[in-house]
Design a protein around this nucleic acid. Structure first.
Length: 282
DNA sequence: GCGACAG
DNA sequence: ATCTTGTCGC
């Protein structure tokens, strides 16, 4: 698939200030509400893997109109990033591609896309199909400048994108996450003082300066995609946020719809293992 | 100086 | 993310 906004392609040679400025520009054009044509209810995986019969891939939907969901994840080999993309239609793998690019800068919280973005865009460049939505490992709107990895990738490719992270970068859950939440549960994550709201979506003062995040805005959800039966142990929730052209609610819906008995949604889980196997062959 | 922060 | 054995509990 093609890059739609080349001016946003991450450039690791920029200064920190320039990277942050680029992220603010990205946040200004990012869309954190539903803006897509596929049917989100048609994303749900069908029954148990391998138990589908022809003409019965999921309920009520012909194979042709089922949305394509892509997952992307990275593995590292020394200072090189391997990015792998896996595209699913229901449970069926439609396409897989990978790419390797040098990781030019170290990991810096808040600037992840400048480390991993190049490899991710190279991988998507090798992809023949056009996914309806992509799951990116990391944050989207849950970010200091509302422009996490999922937002950066989504806006640059202009594709609906969802951020799926294992840990919270910033923002405040409306209730404690240190307790056992039931499978399927979701807890809102609200913007706190660490989140700058973009001028486009936030308030502005009389002097024209952007005002800090409308604190309390729901910028994502902690999503319990899987949970143990027993009460002695529990699984931590995922942290899901809009990347681009998807609302926080729909982002959470999509992740739950593609969970298949594991903590990570299938597209992400398969991309993760694919990246690992590619890494092993290098 | 201290705290805190995806992958 | 990555380095890594065993180990506790499904």
């Amino acid at each position: 698939m093609d890059i739609v906004r080349p001016e946003f392609v991450p450039d690791a040679s920029l200064s920190t200030a320039e990277m942050e400025a680029l992220q603010r520009d990205i946040a200004d054009v990012a869309v954190f509400s539903d803006d897509f044509t596929f049917d989100p209810d048609a994303v749900a995986l069908g029954g148990p893997a391998g138990q589908q019969t022809l003409g019965e891939q999921g309920d009520e939907h012909a194979a042709g109109d089922r949305p394509l969901v892509a997952g992307v994840d990275q593995a590292f080999v020394g200072d090189r990033a391997v990015s792998a993309v896996v595209v699913l239609r229901g449970r069926e793998v439609v396409e897989r591609v990978w790419a390797v690019e040098p990781a030019e800068i170290p990991y810096v919280p808040g600037l992840l896309s400048f480390r991993e973005g190049g490899a991710i865009l190279s991988a998507f460049g090798a992809l023949d199909c056009e996914p309806d939505v992509v799951f990116v490992d990391g944050s989207g709107r849950i970010h200091y400048r509302e422009a996490g990895l999922a937002t950066h990738i989504g806006v640059t490719l202009d594709v609906p994108a969802v951020g799926v992270a294992k840990n919270l970068l910033c923002g405040e859950p409306t209730e404690s996450l240190d307790r056992k939440l039931p499978e399927g549960a979701r807890v809102p994550i609200e913007a706190d003082a660490r989140v700058e709201t973009s001028v486009a979506s936030g308030a502005q003062r009389a002097d024209g300066d952007a005002v800090d995040a409308t604190e309390g805005t729901v910028i994502g959800y902690a999503v319990q995609s899987r949970q143990y039966e027993s009460d002695s142990q529990y699984i931590n929730p995922l942290v899901v946020s809009p990347g681009h052209r998807v609302s926080a609610e729909t982002a959470a819906d999509l992740v739950l719809a593609t969970a298949a008995g594991y903590k990570l949604p299938e597209p992400t889980r398969l991309a993760d293992s694919y990246a690992d196997s590619v890494k092993g062959e290098l």
